[in-house]
């Protein structure tokens, strides 16, 4: 049997979902039997290759994230939104209640530690933030969603294992749905 190619991606999130992925502990060996992890924040890799399954953590917050996500979508068979941020923006989306300008000023200019000397950085090489943080399915079609902040290691393993064995998991039937 051909080994599948698996990638994990970290967009606008806290990496907590990746920590939870590591919590599947020795079951990672079962995953490794069925798949090669070809691209991940914990694996060295340059460009995003063509993969069978991609776990995408975090929401889309900037033009760089969007370009990356569109590239991932083109090169991925099964795109999985990984965690609450990817599914429904969660904590990353908390800046959406305010104007982006106010958010910048609060963090760079008005915060107490800046001693009133701070200024909003304006460098073309910096990320260009979107007005609103978006969940993945607002930008590209998503094949599967694992909610949770972070998702349980058991849930992650269950979903991975099902997909690696060419089955479609059902979180609702497996009673593994969890938000927060």
């Amino acid at each position: 049997m051909n080994k599948k190619k698996l990638a994990t991606v970290w967009l606008g999130g806290c990496s907590g979902c990746h920590m939870s992925l590591l919590d599947i502990d020795e079951r990672i060996l079962d995953v490794a039997k069925l798949a090669d992890i070809v691209k991940s924040p914990v694996v060295d890799g340059k460009d995003f290759p063509e993969v069978d399954i991609a776990l995408v953590e975090g929401s889309v917050t900037s033009d760089e994230h969007l370009a990356e996500l569109l590239h991932i979508r083109k090169n991925t068979k099964t795109l999985i939104a990984f965690g609450d941020c990817a599914a429904m923006t969660n904590v990353t989306g908390m800046r959406n209640y305010f104007d982006l300008k106010d958010v910048f000023e609060t963090s760079y200019v008005n915060s107490i530690s800046n001693d009133q000397e701070g200024e909003v950085p304006d460098n073309p090489y910096l990320l260009r933030l979107h007005d609103k943080v978006l969940p993945l399915q607002e930008c590209v079609p998503v094949d599967f969603v694992i909610p949770g902040c972070p998702p349980n290691a058991d849930t992650i393993f269950y979903v991975l294992f099902e997909f690696l064995n060419d089955r479609t998991p059902n979180l609702s039937e497996a009673k593994k749905l969890k938000y927060g």
Partner: peptide, 10 residues
């Protein structure tokens, strides 16, 4: 057909 970045930036 595809979501565009310039539509998301002020």
């Amino acid at each position: 057909t595809v979501i565009k970045s310039e539509n998301l930036v002020h």
